[in-house]
Design a protein around this nucleic acid. Structure first.
Lengths: 208, 208
DNA sequence: CACTGCCAAACGACCGTTCGTTTGGAGGCC
DNA sequence: GGCCTCCAAACGAACGGTCGTTTGGCAGTG
């Protein structure tokens, strides 16, 4: 009965399977999907190659689990930002901070989500693409609100602004290394600040 | 004699080898390095697997050629922006526009440079890392100049600002598809505009 | 006794690389 | 022109090894 109420959200993965997905996330992010063999994965878990197939259907299914889980985490945070009762800049800030927090707190899964999803077969990739599109739509909606409310410049191209925000968040995995001076939240705040206010001094108008 | 004057710059690759590197760039960017077999590459060139080894040393050497060539193109453009006689915002704009132009005009090589370089062996990867560091240093220098000259906000963190600019440029490969409405130059200009001026209206001061 | 979780072995396919040989010209010499 | 030499380019078979996946059995637990 409670299964019916939570049909898709609570992925009914057995504990052992969750361990395997976690190990796969780490290996896929380090070595890439094609660079990771089932032997690597089995070694990391201390068992034989073939034994994995008692828990999973295929290597690709494993990739999908990692990628899909990553997508869901971003979506969840995005939805929270979208539904805030606040002006656009605050919601945008929340989205970007949430994005970077998610990317860093689950660095392996986020890396796989961003880098390796394209190796999914067409059908599975399409399901991930839908979630990406939905996320981007949320971001655009916030930016459009900001323009309509007169808080953002009226001449900004919504699509480009959204891409810039996503670029800031999506490239994090490429340079972030644990143990840095700043935590995920502070990193997100600083990027949001820069994106909102820009590099130029407000008084400087010498630029074209 | 003239060989001695240009010892390293003019990569002395035979024409056939250049074809192979080009095909490798395309395949590596599409399927990933580990997802591309020598059979794939041979098929794309219309010859046998083993015949490739008359022209190249190894698969990894091929990856290095693609990645290194990509790095050199970015460096060249960065140097041009750094040496401009102009205020910081103009030089920053030039760097970002050049970056995106390079990324799009050589989309395959740029994708491989950004995504697949980490699969190089330690020694080769280090040589690429040096070029990346040099490029980032150029960008930081421009930003520092902008602050020193009073054109950029004095409170911007140089490292973060540089990362934001690089994020904008480096994520391009992930969404750009040929045949869009805007060309590389216009895309770079718009990103630069957004990064310099920010999203907020100048009059809006309600945001913390 | 049934069930889980894993092992050990095997499957055919494909991996990157090596190697001896063949091919089609280009250039020098009579 | 006819002949010989040389060479770059590619072939096609083979190397040892690894790939992802399947299968049958066995020990341990409820």
């Amino acid at each position: 009965m409670s299964q019916l109420l939570a049909p898709q959200t609570a992925t009914d993965h057995t504990p052992r399977r969750r361990e395997i997905i976690g190990a796969a996330a780490r290996l896929f992010s380090e070595r890439g999907y094609h660079g990771t063999s089932m032997q690597h994965l089995a070694d990391a878990l201390g068992l034989q190659r073939g034994s994995l197939y008692a828990h999973i259907g295929s290597k690709e299914e494993l990739l999908f689990d990692v990628v899909n889980e990553g997508a869901d985490r971003f979506l969840e945070r995005g939805r929270a930002a979208l539904e805030m009762q606040a002006i656009a800049s605050v919601r945008l800030r929340r989205l970007l901070v949430g994005h970077i927090e998610t990317a860093i707190e689950h660095l392996d899964a986020a890396t796989v989500f961003l880098n390796e999803w394209r190796y999914l077969s067409e059908e599975l990739r399409a399901r991930v693409q839908d979630k990406r599109d939905a996320y981007e739509a949320m971001l655009k909606e916030i930016i459009e609100d900001g323009i309509a409310q007169g808080q953002f410049r009226p001449d900004v191209n919504v699509r480009f602004a959204a891409r810039l925000v996503l670029s800031a968040g999506n490239w994090t995995y490429a340079w972030y290394r644990p143990g840095g001076e700043l935590g995920p939240t502070e990193i997100g705040q600083r990027f949001a600040e820069l994106l909102l206010k820009g590099l130029l001094q407000e008084t400087a108008e010498g630029d074209r």
